[in-house]
Computed example of a mutant assay.
Amino acid sequence: MPRVGLTTDRVVAAAADLADEAGFEAVTVSALARHFGVRDASLYTHVRGLQDLRVRVALLAGGELIDEIAQAVAGRAGKEALVAFAGAYRAYALRHPGRYAATQIRVDESLVATVADSPAMRRTAEITHGMLRAYGLGEPDLTDAVRLLRSTFHGYCALEAGGGFGAPRDVRASWDKAVDALHVALENWPREERAAG
């Protein structure tokens, strides 16, 4: 029987908060049980186990992240949208390090379809593709461009969060230059030639 006051949403929100406070690896069923003052078994009414819990945190964080990005890019296009998208991404990653780490987890094969079909993932694809529409990219170039943006944003945020930039140059100034360079790359994308049918 579920403990009064405990819900799946409340458990996942607490796990996300714990991730930000102590790191995503610190998120365990036992840690949450201690937080709520219950036995581990009490939480299995709300989550199926550690993997399920972590995937739920990833989906929560992914939804929060794309909501912030969507708000930032609303009404913008081209470089202005790219700058807003990048800025919202970086701000979320730095403000919520544990939640952000959750968005990067590798999902068990049995859950891939569930995650890919989640509202957060669908919205992420829609917003990202919408932002890139101004650059006139079609497939497979669109997928390549998304991968370039994701790897650049993630790599930069991971290095920044870990104190990986030791040069005296202002980190924000380098970020702005990186986004400027991405805009130039997107405007001059080496489009893949389509085979004649």
Rank of each mutant, 00 (worst) to 15 (best):
residue 34 R to C: 11
residue 14 A to I: 07
residue 148 L to I: 14
residue 43 L to M: 09
residue 172 R to Q: 15
residue 111 L to H: 09
residue 100 Y to G: 06
residue 39 R to P: 00
residue 77 A to N: 12
residue 115 V to Q: 03
residue 35 H to C: 05
residue 114 T to C: 03
residue 30 S to Q: 13
residue 73 V to T: 05
residue 143 T to A: 15
residue 53 L to G: 03
residue 109 E to W: 08
residue 24 F to E: 08
residue 72 A to G: 09
residue 33 A to T: 02
residue 151 S to W: 08
residue 75 G to Q: 06
residue 40 D to V: 12
residue 122 R to Q: 14
residue 97 P to W: 06
residue 81 A to S: 09
residue 139 E to R: 01
residue 188 N to L: 10
residue 47 V to L: 10
residue 91 A to D: 12
residue 140 P to Q: 07
residue 149 L to S: 05
residue 135 Y to M: 04
residue 50 L to F: 06
residue 135 Y to V: 04
residue 26 A to P: 06
residue 58 A to M: 15
residue 19 A to M: 08
residue 175 W to E: 11
residue 182 L to P: 05
residue 48 R to T: 14
residue 25 E to V: 14
residue 196 A to W: 11
residue 190 P to W: 01
residue 125 A to T: 13
residue 129 H to G: 07
residue 95 R to H: 11
residue 56 R to C: 05
residue 118 S to D: 00
residue 42 S to H: 14
residue 112 V to D: 00
residue 86 A to G: 14
residue 145 A to I: 06
residue 147 R to A: 12
residue 175 W to G: 08
residue 10 R to Q: 09
residue 69 I to M: 04
residue 88 A to K: 02
residue 83 V to C: 08
residue 67 D to N: 09
residue 6 L to Q: 09
residue 126 E to P: 02
residue 24 F to G: 05
residue 196 A to L: 11
residue 99 R to T: 07
residue 56 R to Y: 09
residue 191 R to Y: 01
residue 41 A to M: 12
residue 159 L to S: 10
residue 62 G to Q: 00
residue 75 G to C: 07
residue 112 V to C: 03
residue 36 F to R: 01
residue 149 L to I: 09
residue 97 P to I: 01
residue 151 S to E: 10
residue 165 F to Y: 14
residue 12 V to W: 04
residue 168 P to G: 11
residue 19 A to S: 09
residue 68 E to I: 04
residue 155 G to S: 02
residue 143 T to W: 10
residue 175 W to F: 15
residue 115 V to G: 03
residue 108 D to M: 10
residue 160 E to F: 04
residue 152 T to I: 11
residue 174 S to V: 12
residue 65 L to I: 07
residue 106 R to C: 04
residue 19 A to C: 05
residue 164 G to I: 00
residue 102 A to E: 04
residue 156 Y to M: 09
residue 157 C to S: 13
residue 142 L to E: 04
residue 12 V to T: 12
residue 107 V to Y: 01
residue 82 L to A: 02
residue 102 A to Q: 05
residue 10 R to W: 03
residue 16 A to D: 08
residue 35 H to F: 13
residue 135 Y to H: 03
residue 50 L to W: 00
residue 28 T to E: 00
residue 4 V to K: 15
residue 166 G to E: 12
residue 132 L to V: 01
residue 21 E to V: 14
residue 38 V to K: 08
residue 53 L to D: 06
residue 53 L to N: 00
residue 95 R to A: 15
residue 124 T to A: 12
residue 191 R to V: 06
residue 184 V to E: 11
residue 195 A to E: 11
residue 110 S to C: 00
residue 88 A to Y: 03
residue 110 S to G: 06
residue 30 S to K: 14
residue 96 H to I: 08
residue 20 D to H: 09
residue 108 D to W: 05
residue 3 R to Q: 12
residue 175 W to N: 09
residue 31 A to G: 05
residue 132 L to N: 01
residue 182 L to N: 03
residue 38 V to C: 15
residue 146 V to W: 01
residue 35 H to Q: 10
residue 4 V to G: 00
residue 10 R to G: 12
residue 94 L to I: 10
residue 183 H to R: 01
residue 156 Y to C: 02
residue 130 G to A: 03
residue 177 K to R: 13
residue 84 A to P: 04
residue 82 L to V: 06
residue 81 A to M: 08
residue 184 V to M: 08
